[in-house]
Simulated assay, not measured.
Amino acid sequence: MAGSASEGLITIGVLARASGLTASALRFYDDCGLLIPAAVDPLTGYRYYTEAQRERATLIRQLRAIDLPLDTIARILSDDAARARQLLDDHVDELARRARDAAHVVAAVKRSLGTGSHVVVSAAALADALEQVRAAAATTRGIPVLAGVLVEADANVLTLTATDRYRLCTRSVVAHRGRGGAWSRVLDPDGLGPTTAWLRGEDEIIATPTEHFLILSGSNAEHRSAVIDAPFPDYRAVLSGLGPVRTRAVVARDQLLGILEKTEATVQLAIDQTGITVSENNHLSATVTGSALTVYFDTATLLATVHTALGPDLMLDIAAADQPVLLRSATDGALTTLAMPTRPTGES
């Protein structure tokens, strides 16, 4: 470049020192069109800049330091000042959101550091599971363990189960992460109501077992649920011992629920290819496969079971009129409930 052509211009090295950018960064910003030199020597390829470009280079360094993408920087450095201010405000809001998310993750990791076996699950999913499963627990403490809720965990799943010997309900919740071996505790029913309500206000929960408690740790607080030191019935043996399905019926949950809420004492379900007739007077459309049969339930038992089911449809799998009936929700295969039939009124 001729000497006169470079008068008043500064070299890339001078601009790099003045702006705090490296020469390689300035070459990169030239190549992407963000900071084009005022002149380039055709023989040597040396880049030259004006003094006015020093301010632009400094602004680019500052904006890159807060992780602004190049296309946004280009818009900010345009002549539209109002648009530039809006873009900067939007970016600061996004940085604040990311900082909050990062703080949440760090807090969760800190809570789990130093603890023994534990699993991390969705607080909302755990609250739902507790509400659904507790409906099958005994309402008295004649056999204390039957009034509790069994919680079993491994690294991948948290499973909750309850039974009063007439009903059995089990629900699995996928764990976000976990550490340690498998463990189980039976939760005492006292305090589970407030614990469930508290879970509704949390995001993620760390469940950590101790000898006398199951500790549920949230973002800013923890709940200690007392445990019952007694063996829980082997519900898996009950499930695996069910006979082959003889009759299967899929019925609208809300329709069945509405009828059960108006039925007293014992309810009769007469199932055939036309659907389900409830207590002789109420016919419900249903998709039925298998043999026709009639099964009787204590209304309170069946009502509580149907009430906790999920989704619009309920599937009944029946092996025999005197065997436990398996009820499942089509939209959530992780929720499984057994309801024990009863004898027809008047039979001994």
Rank of each mutant, 00 (worst) to 15 (best):
L95R: 03
A84T: 07
D79S: 04
L95W: 04
A84L: 02
L63C: 04
D90V: 03
L88A: 12
R75D: 07
A57W: 12
R61H: 02
I76V: 14
T72Q: 09
I66P: 10
A65Q: 05
R85L: 15
R56S: 15
Y49I: 15
T72Y: 02
Q86D: 14
A52F: 13
P69D: 09
A82I: 15
S78A: 12
L77W: 13
Q86S: 13
A102S: 07
L63H: 06
D79R: 01
I76R: 12
L88W: 09
A102W: 03
S78G: 10
A57E: 12
Q86Y: 11
A52T: 13
S78T: 01
T72M: 01
I76S: 12
R98Y: 08
Y49D: 13
Q53K: 08
R100D: 04
H91S: 06
R98Q: 02
A102P: 00
P69A: 08
A99E: 09
D93I: 04
R64N: 01
L95V: 00
A74Y: 05
D101K: 00
A96H: 04
L95N: 05
D89F: 07
I66S: 10
A102E: 00
I60G: 10
R97N: 02
L63Y: 11
E94V: 06
T72L: 08
I66Y: 11
R54Y: 14
A84V: 05
L95S: 07
D71I: 03
D90S: 04
D67Q: 08
L77F: 14
R83D: 12
E94C: 00
T58D: 13
D93E: 07
R56K: 13
R61Q: 07
E55C: 08
R85Q: 13
E94Y: 02
I76K: 12
H91A: 02
D89T: 09
E51I: 11
R75P: 05
R100Q: 04
L77S: 14
R98N: 04
E51P: 09
A102Y: 04
A57V: 11
S78P: 03
D101F: 06
A96V: 07
R64M: 04
E51Q: 09
A81G: 09
T50V: 14
L87N: 03
R64Y: 02
H91W: 03
Q86I: 12
A103L: 10
L87G: 03
D79W: 06
R54K: 15
R100F: 07
L59P: 06
L88N: 11
R83F: 11
R54E: 14
A102M: 07
H104F: 00
R75G: 00
S78I: 06
V92P: 06
A96C: 00
R61A: 07
I66M: 12
R98K: 01
H104V: 03
R61Y: 05
A82S: 14
Q53H: 09
R75H: 04
I73L: 00
Q86A: 13
I60E: 05
A57C: 11
R56E: 15
H104S: 00
D89Y: 01
L63T: 04
I76F: 12
P69H: 00
L70Y: 07
S78E: 06
I66A: 11
A52R: 14
D80E: 01
D71Y: 06
L87H: 05
E51R: 12
L70F: 08
P69Q: 03
E55Q: 11
I66K: 12
R64P: 02
E55N: 02
